[in-house]
């Protein structure tokens, strides 16, 4: 197991190096870092030349790549083209915010979806099952931005009519978020709506998967064996069926997490949350390649890490998975 993890980590390093070259190559050929500088009216020829020198923009791409890699390791993921700001602090900040958002949304989604999925499967074709199915399809079919906007409209109106502020509808913190408990409350009020938005989509997906895999498992021979042993029905489902039904869900969650961390763009944009997606979107608009590349590297790393976590979780749940 340990050797497996170590080997996977070493392998991941290779993958990330390959990814870094691909990222650098494609971003560099698709975007001349100086072109957006030239469009800035305030940038003089001399400034541009300085920047060009600092970033070694005269060198061929492989050489620039090596400078970039060096920057990644030794110089806080490199600096922005304008202003020479280090990129790492910005990235850490937005990643922290996105992690708060995604982890909260996914925890809620996973717990609820497992509950809904299992109960739907055990009471197949019941009123509950039909409602859950309808909810999932509606949830999957609703565009995220529309849902986000509707939630904003709803809670703004609640505020206007009843003068109760349950959730804030934009940004991450109030003017004076306070400290300790009042900070946490403020954060929760700000994250509430984006969390709901993300969670609804995830619940819709996960509960479908959970229901399907539970249905498959409850009719399996080994569940019948468990029942034939004289076990209580609760133990039959919770011990023998549930654990097997979880296995396929792990893969879906891991894949989805990787996508969410990088791709909560719409949600973050609508709620003006200073997170990964929002950051990426703004950097793309600016046209500065260095933050974009740093961001892509972070996302590549996250995807690799989540795949590894999924594989390990898989192995813990399913003894048939071999670590060799």
């Amino acid at each position: 197991m340990l050797t497996y993890v170590v080997r996977r980590l070493l392998y991941s390093i290779v993958v990330l190096f390959a990814a870094s070259f691909i990222i650098f190559f494609f971003v560099s050929v698709s975007n001349d870092p100086l072109s957006f500088l030239r469009m800035q009216p305030t940038a003089s020829e001399i400034t541009i030349e300085n920047i060009s020198e600092r970033k070694h923009l005269d060198e061929p791409i492989p050489v620039r790549y090596l400078y970039w890699v060096q920057d990644m390791f030794t110089n806080q993921f490199g600096t922005t083209t304008i202003g020479d700001r280090p990129i790492l602090p910005d990235l850490t900040r937005v990643m922290g915010h996105t992690l708060q958002l995604v982890i909260a949304a996914e925890l809620i989604a996973i717990l609820l979806a497992i509950g809904i999925g299992v109960y739907s499967a055990l009471r197949q074709y019941s009123a509950f099952d039909y409602s859950a199915t309808t909810f999932s399809f509606v949830g999957l079919a609703t565009p995220v931005f529309w849902l986000a906007l509707m939630l904003q409209v709803l809670f703004v109106n609640i505020y206007l009519w009843f003068d109760i502020r349950i959730f804030y509808t934009a940004n991450l913190s109030g003017i004076d978020p306070g400290t300790g408990l009042s900070f946490l409350l403020d954060r929760a009020q700000h994250l509430g709506l984006p969390v709901i938005t993300l969670a609804i989509a995830s619940i819709a997906t996960y509960s479908r998967f959970m229901r399907a895999s539970m249905l498959e498992v409850v009719n399996s021979d080994y569940v019948r064996t468990a029942r034939a042993k004289g076990l209580h029905e609760r133990k039959v489902t919770m011990r023998h069926a549930f654990r097997n039904a979880l296995i396929p869900l792990v893969t879906i969650i891991a894949l989805n997490l990787g996508a969410l961390l990088s791709g909560a763009v719409v949600t973050e944009t609508v709620f003006a949350l200073d997170g990964m997606g929002f950051y990426y979107y703004n950097q793309l608009l600016l046209g500065d390649p260095y933050p974009v590349m740093a961001w892509l590297m972070v996302v590549a790393t996250l995807v690799v890490v989540f795949n590894l976590v999924a594989d390990i979780a898989y192995g813990i749940l399913d003894p048939r998975v071999r670590y060799d």
Binding site: Y222, R224, T225, A228, K229, H232, R243, D318
Partner: peptide, 26 residues
């Protein structure tokens, strides 16, 4: 149900057809 559970696997036990799928893989 409770009495049936006590009998099942106790006084009346069953062996199934397909041993490949009748044991819980995990």
């Amino acid at each position: 149900k409770k009495e049936l559970r006590n009998i099942r696997g106790g006084e009346v036990a069953m062996i199934f057809q397909d041993p490949m799928t009748s044991l819980n893989p995990v």
